[in-house]
């Protein structure tokens, strides 16, 4: 690694996972870095622990056996046991991690860790030989990867300087000057497109669709390689107008290399509770594979340009 820009690489970010051998976040074998903090609040989100930019305590009630070990070591009286319930006062938590290492059931976790770009990259570069042979690289995901903008840039710069292919996952809620700057550091954008109906978009993500489209237009203008990723949530955006819009976007922008359907699954729903949030779609069920297959057929753009 070169020493140039050392100060920049000392930027600290809050990282909640570094996942190696990821095979579905871009081409080849990849390491995905998950950054905390998101500017959307998608109600179907499977990573709600990424909403807050700060480290936080997560507690899985189903794993807890009420042994009280956490209570004994906590310096801030976060844990209370009464009868058969274990309540967690997250506001009082000082994030010391004492309860996490003590819990014999692995029911407590500290989500998010402060790391320098250099430290994160030291993990990423360990698999360089696998990236090189498979055409893979580093993907930065979130949360919304661009929320920790300076940190993200530092990380991408390190990757670039070391010849590692870069992807970021983004929801498109990014100031245009930042997005423009990122185009110089990112080889492939995994760009979320979540809803076509303006109302639905606002109600279920908390953000305006127009900003997403503006970002997409900017990427097109810059010729930045892009894959659309489309979460499809039954009853919310699984309608023909939305599929048609996806096809139209693919037809309009030649920088969109592909579009992927991300069928809804309810794997993350317990995580909301674990970080003290309420899941508002409790009745939604995971989409069966055959349904996902049908949806995939609906976003295919035919080779003759017919959308």
């Amino acid at each position: 690694m070169r020493c140039k820009g050392l100060v920049q690489f000392m930027y600290k970010g809050i990282v909640f996972d570094i996942s190696r051998f990821c095979v579905h976040d871009g081409p080849g074998i990849r390491t995905t870095v998950f950054l905390k903090g998101c500017n959307m609040r998608c109600r179907w989100c499977h990573n709600p622990e990424s909403f807050s930019p700060a480290p936080q305590l997560s507690f899985s009630a189903s794993k807890c056996t009420l042994c009280g070990a956490c209570m004994a070591v906590c310096p801030a009286e976060v844990h209370r046991l009464s009868g058969d319930t274990h309540t967690v006062n997250r506001d009082a938590c000082v994030r010391c991690g004492a309860c996490v290492t003590t819990c014999p059931q692995d029911a407590l976790k500290l989500v998010g860790k402060e790391m320098t770009a250099q430290e994160v990259f030291a993990e990423v570069i360990k698999d360089k030989k696998y990236y090189d042979t498979s055409g893979g690289g580093m993907t930065v995901s979130g949360g919304e990867s661009t929320v920790q903008y300076d940190f993200l840039c530092a990380l991408l710069t390190l990757a670039r300087e070391n010849g590692i292919h870069t992807c970021i996952e983004t929801n498109g809620i990014v100031p245009s000057e930042r997005l423009e700057a990122l185009c110089k550091l990112v080889d492939l954008f995994l760009f979320d497109y979540k809803a076509t109906d303006e109302e639905i978009h606002r109600a279920y993500t908390g953000c305006e669709r127009s900003r997403v489209l503006d970002s997409l237009a900017l990427l097109a203008e810059k010729g930045a390689a892009c894959i659309l990723r489309c979460p499809i949530i039954p009853g919310i955006n699984d309608n023909d107008a939305h599929f048609a819009a996806i096809r139209a976007l693919r037809g309009r922008y030649s920088n969109i290399l592909d579009a992927e359907i991300m069928p809804y699954h309810d794997i993350g729903k317990n995580k909301w509770d674990e970080v003290g949030l309420t899941y508002t779609l409790p009745d939604l069920k995971s989409v069966p594979p055959e349904q996902a297959k049908i949806w995939r057929g609906k976003i295919v753009v035919h080779s003759n340009g017919d959308v």
């Binding site: 990821c22 095979v23 579905h24 976040d25 499977h46 990723r229 979460p231 992927e260 991300m262 069928p263 809804y264 699954h265 794997i267 995971s286 989409v287 996902a292």
Partner: peptide
């Protein structure tokens, strides 16, 4: 295992 759009 693979679950929809990601692995766990």
């Amino acid at each position: 295992v693979r679950i929809g759009g990601f692995s766990a």
